[in-house]
């Protein structure tokens, strides 16, 4: 298939960016979206032009590195998917595909389609852990955990930190990301010990970094590659409320 691509090109963090049009031809519908980008880049390099910079690594939908906003949707036109798992069969021959970087104040563009998501690391550093050191922990089966809770914690822990939730949210809110981590630990006895501090610190960090507020539009849940549920946000609100009044 042939495609017309409109890609955001931006030389550096402070440079002015613009959309540049490219044509790619004879793309197999079995190719992945990033393989299509590879083909484009190979052509650009062969022509002596600079390839399009975009983040990607594992290419199996788990590292959370890939981050393209494709035709108005993070990770493109499919559900429960990352860009690297998106295949060209989801596009029509001759289609125009607009590719933009994640847009949010805390995610500044580094180059072209690559953004800096270290804000997420900072939020985790604010409390996204159980404060145990290596060694000296009880036996793994010492505390039984209700299977339902373990499963819910796993659902939340599946977050890959890609930032699609922020990219999709009209407010660039990071609530789904933060609440997934808060929920995972809130549901497990190991995490409950410092639950109050954790939720207050992580939310405070999220606010300071300049993410928007949640207005419950649920766009985040709709685009999340791991289908993290917005009930995690409600759980975090609840945890936060309890932490504040206790």
């Amino acid at each position: 298939m042939d495609l017309k691509l409109k890609i955001w090109r931006q030389q550096g963090p402070d440079a002015q960016g613009k959309f540049v049009e490219y044509l790619v031809q004879n793309i197999s519908s079995d190719a992945s979206f990033l393989e299509m980008m590879d083909i484009l880049n190979e052509e650009l390099v062969a022509k002596g032009e600079e390839p399009v910079a975009f983040d990607h690594d594992c290419r199996e939908g788990i590292c959370g590195m890939c981050s393209l906003y494709i035709n108005g949707r993070p990770h493109g036109p499919d559900t429960a998917i990352t860009t690297c798992q998106l295949h060209m069969r989801k596009f029509k021959d001759g289609e125009t595909v607009v590719i933009e970087p994640w847009r949010a104040k805390p995610f500044p563009v580094i180059k072209d389609l690559m953004v800096d998501r270290s804000a997420f690391d900072e939020i985790i550093q604010a409390g996204g852990y159980v404060s145990v050191n290596t060694g000296g922990v009880p036996d793994a089966n010492a505390i039984p955990i209700k299977k339902e809770n373990a499963d819910l914690a796993m659902d939340a822990a599946a977050c890959i930190g890609c930032g699609a939730c922020v990219a999709a949210c009209k407010n660039a809110s990071a609530m789904l990301f933060v609440s997934a981590k808060v929920s995972q630990f809130a549901l497990l006895p190991q995490g409950r010990v410092e639950a109050n501090n954790r939720v207050e610190n992580m939310v405070a960090k999220m606010d300071v970094l300049g993410f928007g507020n949640c207005t419950n539009t649920y766009a985040c849940e709709a685009v999340c590659p791991k289908e993290i549920s917005i009930t995690n946000i409600a759980r975090m609100n609840r945890e936060f409320f309890v932490a504040k009044i206790s």
């Binding site: 955001w8 035709n71 108005g72 949707r73 949010a104 009209k170 407010n171 660039a172 928007g212 766009a219």
Partner: peptide, 22 residues
Amino acid sequence: QNWMARPKGYKVKGTSEDSVFS
């Protein structure tokens, strides 16, 4: 604050399956 959180918007507006009124 929400507007400030995304100083530069998208060319193609979001099209996700969320609640319209929201």
